[in-house]
Amino acid sequence: MSNKPKFAMYWAASCGGCEIAVLNIHEKILDVDAAFDVVFWPVAMDAKYKDVEAMQDGEITLCLFNGGMRNDENEHVARLLRKKSKIMVSFGSCACEGCIPGLANFSSIKEMVDTAFTTITTDNPDNLRPQTSYAMPEGIITIPTLNTVLKTLDQVVDVDYYMPGCPPESHQIAAVVDLVIAALNGKAELPPKGATIGAGNSTVCDECTRKRHEKTIKAFGRIQLTHTDPELCLLEQGIPCNGPATRSGCNARCPSAGAQCIGCYGPAEGVVDYGARLIAAFASVIDSDKPDEINQILDGLVDPAGQFYRFNLAGSLLRSSKSAQKG
């Protein structure tokens, strides 16, 4: 085995899109191959899990870890890879802030499982639910236990860097790969621990090319119910766009394609609670001083908490694992 630095990438409760995004750096993947020994990457090669267990602590130089902590298995692998990795990157929205699967934190596990096993096509006369341990006539078989809330990676292990996005944009991944390779060759310096990498320091609005004026609205709209002006800021047109609180880095991809930013790059630099920041931003565009009218305008925002915490519920002040455990 060569003495090149070692690279690993792993998915916990993830959709696989983060892996696809890495594959989408296309030829750049050869740079990764040239600079690193890829020791563990289930999507691209046979996963030698036992080999990872056998490694020295810190033997993996760079580990990109994506996916949230949905069950005890996810947590176990996260702990193992943390131990074996020098640089652990929380990769993608799921690992960083819970992402869409984190919306599960609006509900209890029971509500979640009950729903899945009582849908209209579910044939379940005995009203069964999955059992983590089940005695078949031939013996006991087991499946992992779901966590009561979906956790972010840093709620389970210590993380060195955060790389936001659902998934992170491929040009950003390529830039991070270049940076790490340069740093390994002593040609660049890595940012301080805890930094967000592969993204900008401002907001999606800052990158957005739509025209902006003073934002004031008399009604929130729904994107399907109007023909939006392709040049004008969407929020100004009443379309709930999360650009004002979302971290830059994607080149305002969605607003450029006519769709609102749904917030996949997570909270902008310095934002403590993403949703709280959006409350301030959305409240400030409402053009009214009258309580009744304000509430009428707010009625047009049919799901404010879902809107403001679409990607960030598991990382929020009020619905993360920490708050949920207070019981």
């Binding site: 609006f106 949703g275 709280a276 409350i279 301030a280 959305f282 409240a283 400030s284 409402i286 009214s288 001083d289 309580p291 304000i294 509430n295 707010l298 925002l301 799901d303 404010p304 908490a305 879902g306 403001f308 929020s316 009020l318 619905r319």
Partner: peptide
């Protein structure tokens, strides 16, 4: 001048969000 109207708008929206968060 009108800053407390801003507070009012925030308050109403905040209350709705908190409600959805289980508060």
């Amino acid at each position: 001048a009108t800053q407390n109207y801003k507070a009012m708008r925030r308050f109403y929206l905040m209350k709705r969000v908190l409600n959805q968060l289980g508060i």
